[in-house]
Design a binder for these strands. Structure first.
Lengths: 220, 220
DNA sequence: GGCGATTTGTCACACAACTGTCACGGGTTC
DNA sequence: GAACCCGTGACAGTTGTGTGACAAATCGCC
């Protein structure tokens, strides 16, 4: 979030964190741009009236080398500003004061749309009530952390990252184990062990399902 | 554009055509959904208050088997409605009366985002109310996933890919089974099994019909 | 550096699902 | 009416998957 007003920044941050987001903040465009280069967020919220580089320029800079979803949150409600911001590369535009519910819904809609795009290696994936934090190396099921082994974790990440599509045992072997040969049954065993931990009823898997003859997948 | 108010529909259509869009219109959700199935548009504008099926349901139906960008244009400005529409699957929400410039800019932004979207849109085929998703390894009938076996799946893919044209048993044997000899009756059996799953009345096939003496086909 | 605990990979068995063949019967064509 | 085409149920053989047991490897901890 790039926003110079301390009060707004704080209240939005708190509200977003309540929704489960991890928020990084910056008070100026310069700071925000640098930050985005160092440790990229998967979505950017930006104000238009900023000291120094203004919001429009900031959006163009962000857009220049990044496909990250950008949402403008501004007090200016002029059609002209809205059009200019969207033309600059923003994906959405909300007028302050924003209803938190609406912001949250618009973020979800945008992220849903952006996700279907080129595999963005986001460090936090949500599949249903499963929350995979790749960087933190932890997985939360309904908010409760799970004790996964390293292999289970990597397997889950791989499946979660491609939620909705089937991954063959061969693909999983290559990506999780970095084998390009070897017994495919190995995958079965680990899938079984993973299921013991992430499924409510491991006998009838719901989160990690097998597609007979093809492989495994996690439904969206 | 799905919009029941004639005046709004006309004025929006004219304005959009000025911007270079080709616009198809429908006055009801039913008509719009049918239209979208027949000759899909690449973006859908939808009103919320419609006679018959309402806007929310319409969005869900559209979204069920299509990734098309959806923009809501509604007179209702309640946060609750906005959130509900976005949750149902809409990508953006504008409150009437809309500034044409803003609508246009939002459409451009959305289309820009959507285009960078689906990694491989080619692997999703739609034949009537049947939706074949190759990469997810699943087939949806009216939005409901079907449990097909590997052979059934490949058979269906082959037929769907050439919807409208007759495939001989020989061709199917070659393409699905990779046989270049063998009993052609094998195809019959699997077609029968497939019909049990995809036909409403397997006795009188509608989606997968036989062309006596030639083979099978799926009508468009 | 050693030791117990955990994790990992292999194997074998059991079971369920799928496949291909066949035979019968109804319908169609000539 | 005969020849042919097609749908379908039954069935046995095959394949794919889940799972428990076990030994080797690795890890964590003094």
């Amino acid at each position: 979030m790039i926003e110079d007003d301390d009060r707004i920044r704080l209240s939005l941050t708190l509200a977003l964190e309540d929704e489960g987001y991890t928020v990084h903040t910056a008070a100026t465009a310069e700071e925000g741009l640098l930050r985005q280069q160092r440790e990229p967020a998967d979505t950017v919220l930006v104000d238009l009236m900023l000291p120094g580089i203004d919001g429009f320029q900031c959006i163009r800079e962000l857009r220049r080398d990044d496909d990250v979803p950008i949402v403008v949150v501004s007090a200016r409600e002029d059609t002209h500003d809205i059009v200019a911001a969207l033309e600059a590369g923003a994906d959405d535009y909300l007028v302050k004061p924003v209803a938190m519910k609406e912001l949250s819904a618009r973020l979800r809609a945008l992220r849903r749309r952006a996700r279907t795009g080129p595999a963005a290696p986001a460090d936090q994936l949500r599949i249903g009530d499963l929350n995979v934090r790749a960087q933190a190396g932890e997985v939360l099921l309904r908010g409760q952390p799970l004790a996964l082994t390293r292999t289970e974790f990597r397997l889950l990440c791989e499946l979660a990252e491609h939620a909705g599509q089937v991954l063959s045992r061969q693909q999983l072997l290559e990506r999780v184990w970095e084998y390009d040969f070897g017994d495919e049954r190995l995958v079965d065993v680990h899938v079984g062990r993973l299921r013991q931990k992430i499924e409510d009823d491991p006998g009838t898997p719901a989160r990690l399902v097998t597609v007979r003859g093809l492989g495994y997948k996690m439904p969206r």
